[in-house]
Simulated scan of single mutants.
Amino acid sequence: MELLQLRYFLKLAESEHLTKTALKLRISPPSLSSSIKKLEHELGVALFTRSKQRIHLNENGKNFYQYVNRSLSILDEGIESLHPIRNYALSIALTSQSVYADMLYAFEQQYPEIPLKSSTLTYSDVINSETLNHHDFYLGIIEDLNASEREIIQLCSSESPVVMIARSHPLASKKALYLEELKDMPFISITQENSSATQFVFRVFEEAHFKPHKFFEGNYLVRQKMVSENKAVAITTMVGAVANALKSPMVTFIPIIGIKATRTQSISWPKQKPLSASEKKFIRFCQNYFKKHPWI
């Protein structure tokens, strides 16, 4: 049994697609298939169930994957520990610092030897692969990404839009709203038109074939003030509301009916990018953090 076989198995187990995995590993599909069959022969059990169209991890494979994943992670950390500590900071790109601030602080407290450098990006930066790939990781919205170019791990359930509205508004007691019910109200979004959040608002309007009669822009404090005073309403998600809206008894949030547009928080990195032990730690930390500390 060779270390390379185990790394090949790990990648194939994660994708369950022979050709795509071989392409990522830069070997031929027959070579990958031969390596996996040799591993199975040495173990004395099949790890995959094969059909003409697909290859699926079986129960033996699922159990073996857990051990291989842990073992290789420990091995990679051991290899990295043999080298002098470098002051290399992981470059983290975000579109919303407030959403991830607590998690990034917690990571630096737990791993002070792994410095982080975060940068806030515009929507144009995110959809520009060249700009985004300058960073080790992107923490943000799946729907903004080119999924064919990124490895993506979802960090929470996909969210549908909600209306941020003053409790004094006549519709504030409703459990759900159609956008058309707010046709006489001005809307407000954050100032940066080139922001992910504002692009989401535009997608909601487009899907609903809705055009507000008046549209304001402002920072988060201005948005909060105008909504609280019943001078405007805003579209957001509950994660966005928790991160960016000040707690106020004067404001409530109501789901919007009939909209399929979603926002899904994630961590992603360029496909085929080799991951260091520090980077793997960061990925695992992100996944575990929001299981223990959900946004909502």
Results as ranks from 00 to 15, higher is better:
292 K>N: 13
282 F>M: 00
63 N>E: 14
250 M>R: 15
243 A>L: 05
28 S>R: 15
77 E>L: 08
209 H>T: 10
197 A>N: 02
133 N>I: 01
257 I>W: 04
167 R>D: 00
18 L>Y: 08
51 S>H: 11
13 A>W: 08
108 E>R: 15
240 G>H: 10
152 I>E: 08
69 N>D: 15
33 S>A: 12
143 E>H: 09
23 L>D: 07
57 L>S: 03
194 N>W: 11
53 Q>C: 01
29 P>Q: 01
22 A>N: 08
37 K>E: 03
203 R>S: 10
7 R>G: 04
256 I>G: 06
132 L>E: 13
194 N>P: 08
86 R>A: 04
275 L>Q: 06
48 F>V: 04
222 V>M: 13
294 P>L: 07
232 A>Q: 05
105 Y>A: 12
57 L>Q: 03
158 S>M: 04
257 I>C: 06
56 H>T: 15
200 F>T: 02
232 A>L: 06
31 S>E: 05
12 L>V: 07
280 K>I: 10
18 L>A: 03
195 S>Y: 09
97 Q>M: 10
11 K>Q: 14
129 S>A: 11
294 P>Y: 09
261 A>M: 04
42 E>P: 10
239 V>T: 15
86 R>Y: 01
201 V>K: 06
85 I>S: 11
218 G>C: 09
195 S>P: 06
277 A>I: 01
9 F>C: 02
38 K>L: 08
207 E>N: 02
86 R>D: 00
107 F>Q: 02
129 S>D: 12
19 T>H: 13
204 V>R: 08
225 K>P: 01
52 K>I: 01
